[in-house]
């Protein structure tokens, strides 16, 4: 047996996995009856449909020709997602200025061509702008500096 559409196969498997995850979470939510639908009714039906579509997609990928897999861009992807995670982790203890600085630092590794001096200047200017916009002008309750 040959996989004719690797893209669809991976997509289908992902959908089946999502359905499985949803089912594991539904647990003991009451399903109810059609006339009195319980909290579990809609999610159960949808999770079942997700799994079904995933299954059809996966089976179809063995029959119908389709697209191959495109390579995932981890070289840019990991630093980019890492930068977001770092911001999320550090914004509370370190405040806006330092968390944004770290975001720039980590995301610099996702850059197509890295120029440290330029990155430094750009980040100082942009962090200044962000503080001006969100803290001074919009008056949002942000921690700007680390809390001692």
């Amino acid at each position: 047996m040959r996989v004719r559409s690797p893209q669809d196969l991976v997509g289908g498997i992902a959908l089946i996995a999502l359905a499985a995850l949803a089912f594991s979470q539904i647990g003991d939510l009451r399903f109810g009856t059609a006339s009195r639908m319980g909290p579990g009714y809609f999610p159960t039906v949808l999770a079942a449909l997700t799994g079904l579509v995933g299954l059809v997609l996966a089976v179809r990928s063995l029959v119908l020709d389709g697209h191959g897999l495109e390579s995932l861009n981890l070289r840019h992807g990991l630093p980019l997602l890492g930068a977001i995670l770092v911001f999320g982790l550090t914004i509370r203890p370190l405040g806006l200025v330092l968390a944004s600085g770290l975001l720039f630092l980590v995301s610099a590794f996702a850059s197509p061509e890295l120029k440290w001096r330029e990155t430094l200047v750009a980040s100082v200017v942009l962090i200044g702008l962000a503080v001006l916009l969100f803290v001074v002008l919009l008056d949002l309750p942000f921690p700007v500096w680390p809390r001692m």
Binding site: A83, I84, I91, L96, A108, E118, S123
Partner: peptide, 25 residues
């Protein structure tokens, strides 16, 4: 290379400002 970190920062700050929640980011 200059634009994308700026866009990223605004995304993060914007989402943080909804609930002041780092997990949300």
């Amino acid at each position: 290379r200059i634009l994308f970190p700026a866009i990223l920062m605004f995304c993060c700050i914007g989402v943080y400002s909804i609930n002041s929640s780092g997990i949300e980011v």
